[in-house]
């Protein structure tokens, strides 16, 4: 039950995209159509869900004072986390290039840029600061990824609809995407402070 709470909390209340505004670059650039947004969302769920437990293991067993080296190595945290994330993204890139060349072309530069998607590194750093255990970190990773996935699908769907509206020409596309994200973020601020364990 505790794990379900963490999943819901990380997916909705502490949504990485709309409550913390992490991973905005790919969020805004790839949300033109629901189809590409869906592909990127799945990739982010996968990378977050895998890197979170790996980074948990690295942090607890190698870097912290109770680890195998017996010394506090947490200053290496950033470099090791980003190396794990980079190798996972490289893996995802190879798989996507092989199995879905059309998605590979649609994502373009934003596929390798999942590496520097702040949502993923930010998620790992949140996981450390919240002192989750292994199972909780898996739930947090999957929940965070799912929340980001929902957010990018939502904005892609809105942008597909709004294409047919009479928006002033300079605001079309990117301008409206910024404005909508700001409004969605304000809406999500209303969810902050809800305690899911109260239900």
């Amino acid at each position: 039950m505790e794990l379900v709470n963490i999943f819901i909390k990380s997916a909705f209340i502490e949504n990485l995209a709309l409550a913390y505004f992490l991973g905005m670059c790919s969020y805004l650039a790839v949300s033109k159509t629901v189809k590409t947004a869906f592909g990127l969302g799945l990739a982010v769920i996968f990378v977050l869900g895998i890197t979170m437990p790996i980074n948990w293991m690295i942090n607890t067993w190698l870097l912290s004072e109770g680890g195998i080296f017996g010394v506090d190595l947490t200053f290496l945290k950033l470099i090791l986390f980003i190396a794990v994330i980079a190798s996972m993204v490289q893996l995802v890139e190879m798989v996507v290039e092989k199995f879905s060349p059309s998605l590979y072309n649609a994502l373009g530069i934003f596929l390798p840029l999942i590496t520097v998607n702040c949502a993923i590194l930010g998620g790992s750093l949140f996981m450390v600061s919240k002192e989750y255990n292994f199972a909780e970190s898996v739930a947090f990773g999957l929940g965070g990824g799912f929340g980001w996935f929902l957010a990018i699908i939502a904005i892609a769907a809105i942008r597909e609809k709004i294409r047919y509206s009479a928006v002033p020409a300079p605001m079309r596309g990117l301008g409206m995407a910024f404005l909508l994200t700001g409004l969605m973020g304000m809406a999500f601020m209303g969810l902050m402070g809800i305690d899911p364990s109260a239900f």
């Binding site: 605001m171 301008g175 601020m189």
Partner: peptide, 18 residues
Amino acid sequence: LFPAAMFVIAVFIWLHRA
């Protein structure tokens, strides 16, 4: 707050593209 940055950048995009 964060959303304000989104609005400000949106206005800059508007001016830039106009």
